[in-house]
Design a protein around this nucleic acid. Sequence first.
DNA 1: GCAAATTAATGATTTATTCAAG
DNA 2: CTTGAATAAATCATTAATTTGC
Lengths: 200, 200
Amino acid sequence: MGNMKVHELSRGLWEHEPSLSLACNPLRTHNSNTLSSFHLKTFITPKPTPTKLASSDQQPHSPQVDMQAGAGGTRWNLTQEQIGILEMMYRGGMRTPNAQQIEQITVQLGKYGKIEGKNVFYWFQNHKARERQKQKRNSLVLNSPPITTITLNNSEDGPYKRKCRSWSFEYIEEESGSSSSFKEEETRTLELFPLHPEGR
Amino acid sequence: MGNMKVHELSRGLWEHEPSLSLACNPLRTHNSNTLSSFHLKTFITPKPTPTKLASSDQQPHSPQVDMQAGAGGTRWNLTQEQIGILEMMYRGGMRTPNAQQIEQITVQLGKYGKIEGKNVFYWFQNHKARERQKQKRNSLVLNSPPITTITLNNSEDGPYKRKCRSWSFEYIEEESGSSSSFKEEETRTLELFPLHPEGR
DNA sequence: GCAAATTAATGATTTATTCAAG
DNA sequence: CTTGAATAAATCATTAATTTGC
C-alpha cells in the first residue's frame, strides 16, 4: 500500500469556483437576458511557483515569508479568528459565496492572517459537505442497534478493483440514551447504471 | 480519557436555512486578470462587469469587458476544429492538463475560435468522464456480476473505541473468455506538452 | 516530560451527478 | 440527445491532536 504520489503542483487551476447561486433552492434561473458574459480570459494562472518541485533546483524558498500558510506549498491553516468568522457567516446562511463575495471575505479575513480566495471557497465547500455528513450520520443513529453490521454488497462489481478504505466506527459513551455514534462512510452504493436508464 | 474533541466545530445544528438569496446566478462571471502576477492568487477580481446585477442598484460602472463570444451569456460552443484537436490530444493520452498546459492549449485553440481556459478544462473533465461511462457500460453487459458481501459485525461493547481501517478488497477478473475489462489505467504519459512528468 | 506512533481534522483535488441550453 | 457548466460527493494528503513507551 504505500501510496506515494507526490502530487506536485498543478494546483493553480481552480477552475470552477465562481458562479454562485447562493440562493439555492428553486432552480437556477438563467432565463432572461443577463447577457453578461464576462469572458475574462485566464482562469488559471500559470503559477510556476513552488509547491515543492521535487528535484531540480528551485530555490530553497527563502523563508522570509514564513506565514503559516501558503508559501512553500504547504496547505493553509486558517487562524482561529478566521474560522470563527467563517462559521459565523455559515450560520448566517452563506453556503456558496460567489466570486465577489469570496473576494470580499478574503479581504476581510486577510486582516487576521494570510489567506486567499480559494481557501475561502474550499472552506465553504468542505464545511458544507461535512456538516451534511455529520447531520446524516446523526440522524441515522437515533435508532441504531448496539450491534452494527455493515454490509457492503457490491453486486455490480465486474472486473474492477474496488476498494473501501478507512472504515472506522466508534463508540462514544454517551450516557444519555443508547446513542452509539457510528462513524463511517456510509455504505456507498455506487451505481454503475445510471439511475434513469433512459434519459432524463 | 474520554475523547474530548477540542475541535467541535459543530455548533448547534443547522436549521438548514435557505440561506439568503442573493441575486444569484446571473451567469457565470469569472474574472481574473492574469497579468503578471505569478501566483495563483488572483482568483477573481471583483470587477463588476455585471451590467445587470439582478439585485438592487449597484453602480453600473463601466465594464470595459468586451465579452464577445460569450455575449449572450450562453454557453460555449467549441468549433469542430477545436474539438478535433482536443480529441487528438485526448487520444494522445492527455487527461487532466495542468494550468500551464491548459493555458497553452487555449492559446492554440484560440486561433480557431473564441475559447478560454475553463472550456478546455471542462472539456477534458467531461470527455474523460463520459468515455469512462461509455466503457463501463459496455464492459458490464455480459457477465454475471459476482456478488460480494462483506459483513462487518461489530459486537464489541463497552466504551472502547474500536477501529478498523483500511480495508481493501479487490476483484481480480477471472480471465473467462471475453473479459472486456476496461482497465482504468489511463495511460498518462504521453502528454503533448512536456510540462510535468506526472500528474497524479 | 518528550518524541515517535497513531488518530482525528480538514485543506485541496478529483470524480460523479446534475442542470439546462441547443 | 449531446454536452458545456456547476455542484456535490469522494478522495487524497498534510497538519494538529492524542497516545504511548521510555
